[in-house]
Design a protein around this nucleic acid. Structure first.
Lengths: 230, 230
DNA sequence: TATATTTGTGTAAATCTTACGCATTTAGAA
DNA sequence: TTCTAAATGCGTAAGATTTACACAAATATA
């Protein structure tokens, strides 16, 4: 077997955020010397003594100074043998979600060239990152319908209308507000709080929160989260 | 960035087969010199100028001489920094399905140390392959319920009872034979053939076949395959 | 000819989904 | 103060789907 295989291993992160009926993705500016700079997904080479997950977390910390709410491996991209084969890189992509409180914080550390982009205003990206982003979008859409990951894009306490709009926005579907509420409530995994939200107009709405313990308990009993649409 | 990262990239394949109400997995015998031989998933190092998918297909051909019906990336395992870090390997695992006609063919080429194991008679495996196999099982169970991959484990023409038993066996659930048939037929993605099966006893049964074209056409119109159980 | 076995079809009850109606609570305008 | 617009919260009837069965049909074998 070829001892000098010499393929390098990188990790990339697709970090989604959500605010005001808009989905965002976190990008960094590649510094290719002078002005020929592309936007790219945060990421970089894995160090010899760290796990893949540790590598992503380290890169996210270094490049964007962000910690995420949800995190999972997405896919490994490594079929672009087209580029210089002497410099081949495969990339293990990770999919992550943060809540809106993270969207403002930016210029903390050396994360100065990190920036949030609205999902339909993403510029041309470096390497195969556009393809990776597309795959991440697919995963987000799919997973939203069969796992309660929407809550990881919202503040700890949120309005039903926010949850509802999140689903409408990301899945690009119409939902009946009342049926949606009934469905979610029937799962008994979110709870009313005593708090009300500062509102713009209309009847004041209760804030709700996701009870993760309860969800995990139900999971063991065979519960299956699922939101369908017409 | 560290130029001498020196992580090697391997691919592994989890190939499932099905016959007589039994799920099988394809393993190869590692030749570690003398008698200290472990069973392992087929796989090996990726060559510098081949894609990940090509690498799996090549290894499968070399080690087991099998071609598969279904094929997708499963997961990338690379967190065992525990082993000698100077010799670190990450493994991109692929999930594959073959039909029962492939289960017999074995000693064709240099595939002499490849062997099918019943899923609950799998021996201790090399490396982290037991963990990989467990993850593949989860994927198989999940995917069986929301994509029509069961057909890739059966002959081109099959009995309804075979399909039904496949679901019962792999998902370890009881199904009502009549409701299952109705459900599958309602999708209109399988078709009756003129052929009947040579049977052991009871009323002769028609053979059916999966119409992949029709399935793909329906997919575009928003169709969603789904089998649920009590 | 009777029996065991498996296939193929149907149907009623229960459950879940869908499409709405409407009262409630607030801010702000008249 | 009253009216209106906007959004929340609750309910209900019709439709669709799932579930739990009953039973006839076709074959091999005893």
């Amino acid at each position: 077997m070829s001892e000098n295989q010499n393929i390098r291993v990188a990790v990339d992160a697709i970090v989604f955020g959500y605010q005001n009926n808009q989905l965002y993705v976190l990008l960094i500016q590649q510094k290719f010397g002078t002005n020929d700079s592309y936007w790219a997904l945060p990421g970089g080479l894995v160090q010899i003594d760290e796990s893949l997950e540790d590598a992503v977390k380290r890169e996210l910390k270094e490049e964007t100074n962000i910690s995420v709410n949800y995190f999972e491996q997405l896919f490994t991209f490594g079929d672009d043998v087209f580029r210089d084969p002497r410099n081949r890189v495969i990339s293990v992509a990770y999919f992550a979600l943060v809540d809106s409180s993270k969207l403002k914080v930016k210029a903390d550390s050396d994360a100065e060239n990190a920036q949030w982009f609205k999902i339909d205003e993403v510029p041309a990206l470096a390497f195969d990152h556009t393809i990776i982003l597309r795959k991440a979008m697919q995963r987000l859409k799919a997973k939203l319908t069969y796992e309660p990951i929407g809550f990881d894009l919202l503040p700890k306490e949120f309005l039903f209308s926010e949850l509802e709009n999140l689903y409408c926005t990301i899945l690009e579907k119409e939902i009946d507000r009342r049926n949606f509420r009934k469905k979610i409530l029937s799962f008994e995994i979110i709870e009313e709080t005593d708090h009300f939200s500062p509102i713009k107009s209309g009847r004041p709405a209760k804030l709700f929160k996701f009870n993760k313990q309860k969800y995990n308990a139900l999971l063991k009993k065979g519960f299956h989260f699922e939101i369908k649409f017409a």
